[in-house]
Amino acid sequence: MYYFAEHFSESPDPNEKSVVPEMTQDTQARPSAARRKNQSAPPGIGLTMAIAVISGVVCWFWLASGRANPVRSTAPNVSDLTEVEEREIAGALTTMSLSNAGLAQFREGKDGGCRRPLAWVSLVSAPGEPPSHVRLISGTYYSPIFEVSATPVRVALPFPAPYETGHGALTAIDVGASAIISLLPAWRVSAQDGKTTREVSWRPVKSCGPRNG
C-alpha cells in the first residue's frame, strides 16, 4: 500500500522535454506587427488606388486619340472666314464687282433654289498707317480695289474653293501701305509684300442642299 502511493506521487522527470512548443520572441512579434499594419492602412485605400490607375490610363488614351478636342483648332498660319448670313445678302452684293448675271448666283432663286455662299472680310488700316488700297483674289474672283482707312469696311467674297472642302487661300495685292484684313486671327499685309497669300478655312453648313464654291 505504501509502495503504490509512493509510485504515483513521483514528480515528472525534469529532463523530459515538454510537448508544448515554446513561443519565441519573433513568433510573438509578428502578429503584433501585422495588427499595426492593418490598423495604419485607411479603409478602402486599395480600391481608391485601383480606380485612380484605371482613370489615368483611360484619360491618356482619350487625349492621345484626339477625342479630347473634337473641334479642329485653327493653325497659326490659317485664318477663319465668316459666312454671310441670309439677311445680309443684299448689302454684301453691293461690295462685289460682278455683272447682274454673275450676282444672281449668290441670290436665292425665285423658286427657292439654293444660292452660292459668300464670305465676309473687313479691311482697316494698321494703326498709325496712312490710307492704302487693297485688292483681293478669291479663287477666280477679283474684287474691286478698296480704299482702306482707319474706318473698317466690310466686303463680301465668294469662297476661294468649293464650299464643301472647308479650306482655300486668299490673295491680297495693290497694297499702298500696311493694312489689316480682319480674319481670325487677323492678317496684316503691307506694301512690301506686293502680292501675298493667306490660307483660310471655314465650317461648311448644309442648309440648302449641295453647294459649290
Score class of each variant (00 low, 15 high):
A156Y: 06
G102Q: 03
L157G: 07
S65I: 13
S143Q: 05
A119N: 04
A92Q: 06
Q105P: 00
S122C: 01
I137N: 10
I137V: 11
E88H: 00
W62N: 14
I137Y: 06
P160W: 09
A126H: 01
T74F: 07
P162N: 09
N69F: 11
L136F: 08
S122H: 04
W120K: 06
L63V: 12
A92D: 02
V134C: 05
V84A: 09
G112T: 10
G113N: 11
G102V: 04
S143W: 01
V121G: 07
S73C: 13
L118R: 01
G139V: 03
T74R: 11
F159E: 06
Q105R: 13
G166F: 01
S73P: 02
N100D: 15
L118W: 03
A126Y: 03
F106I: 08
L63H: 13
S99V: 03
G102C: 05
S99D: 11
V84K: 02
A172N: 03
R87N: 01
T82Y: 00
G112L: 13
G128D: 11
G112R: 12
D111K: 12
R116H: 12
G91N: 10
V121S: 05
K110N: 14
W62K: 07
Q105Y: 00
P160F: 10
D80V: 15
L170F: 02
S65P: 00
S73A: 15
V71I: 12
G66V: 07
R72L: 05
I145F: 01
A64Y: 00
P76I: 15
A92M: 01
S79P: 00
R67G: 10
A172S: 10
F146K: 07
A75N: 00
T94L: 04
E88I: 04
F146V: 06
V121R: 05
T74C: 14
S97H: 04
C59S: 12
A75G: 06
S97Q: 11
